[in-house]
């Protein structure tokens, strides 16, 4: 998951970015509205955290521009005063949730998780597909009730595929959404992750949760539990 943090205070920006990085997000950050708006429109974002009181382009304007451009990733707004007028304004402009400063780390992460999950069409924090269950809060995976050991990157790939179930996800899309700018990107690594995921989640090759579409990418094909 790739998150964008637009916050003018450098310390808070660093803090929020750190929280999200620790949670397994690839994070881009911007210190003013103009830069933020550019990133929000151009980068492959899965979640944006936007402060409403920004220099240059205000937060509301960024949200409007993003929605006008047809980009649908969830947006969490940060407001300083619990002013409902600005909250309503932000949510009306196209944001999906709000958080009042100051906030707890857990609060921010819970909102972020819920938003990403919701954007994938899931209303529960447990993503259940047959015997495979992802707990997005604890960030662990169970197969038929038994925990599955996954590395952080393996989990990220799995979560991205499950949240985009039924869609064809290319290797480059996966690298774009999972790696930070400064990290070395090698699409071969993705193949390795997917192979390992298949072994760990489907040791008997009976489920076939991930389909490979030659030349275009991967697709999560396990239907979600009703």
């Amino acid at each position: 998951m790739r998150a964008l943090v637009i916050e003018d205070d450098p310390q808070l920006r660093a803090q929020v970015s750190q929280y999200l990085t620790e949670e397994g997000y690839a994070v881009d950050s911007a210190g003013d509205g103009d830069e933020g708006q550019f990133m929000a429109l151009e980068y492959p974002i899965d979640l944006a955290v936007i402060d409403l009181g920004l220099p240059k382009t205000p937060g509301i304007a960024i949200i409007k521009a993003v929605r006008k451009a047809g980009r649908k990733f969830p947006i969490l707004i940060l407001t300083a005063r619990d002013g409902w007028q600005s909250k309503v304004e932000g949510l009306e402009a196209g944001a999906d949730d709000y958080l009042v400063k100051p906030f707890h780390r857990e609060e921010l992460l819970a909102r972020a998780r819920a938003l990403v999950r919701r954007s994938g069409g899931w209303s529960q924090s447990l993503l259940e597909c047959g015997p495979i269950v992802l707990d997005t809060t604890a960030r662990n995976v169970n197969l038929s009730g038994k925990p599955v050991e996954l590395t952080a990157y393996e989990y990220r790939v799995l979560e991205y595929l499950v949240l985009h179930a039924g869609e064809v996800v290319s290797k480059s899309t996966l690298t774009e959404h999972l790696y930070n700018e400064d990290e070395e990107r090698d699409s071969n690594v993705i193949e390795v992750f997917v192979r390992r995921l298949r072994t760990k989640l489907d040791p008997d090759s009976t489920l076939n949760p991930i389909t490979t579409l030659r030349g275009s990418g991967y697709r999560w094909d396990l239907p979600r539990n009703p």
């Binding site: 205070d9 310390q11 808070l12 803090q15 402060d51 400063k101 100051p102 906030f103 707890h104």
Partner: peptide
Amino acid sequence: TPLAVLRG
């Protein structure tokens, strides 16, 4: 904003 940093 600085309060949020402190809280963090």
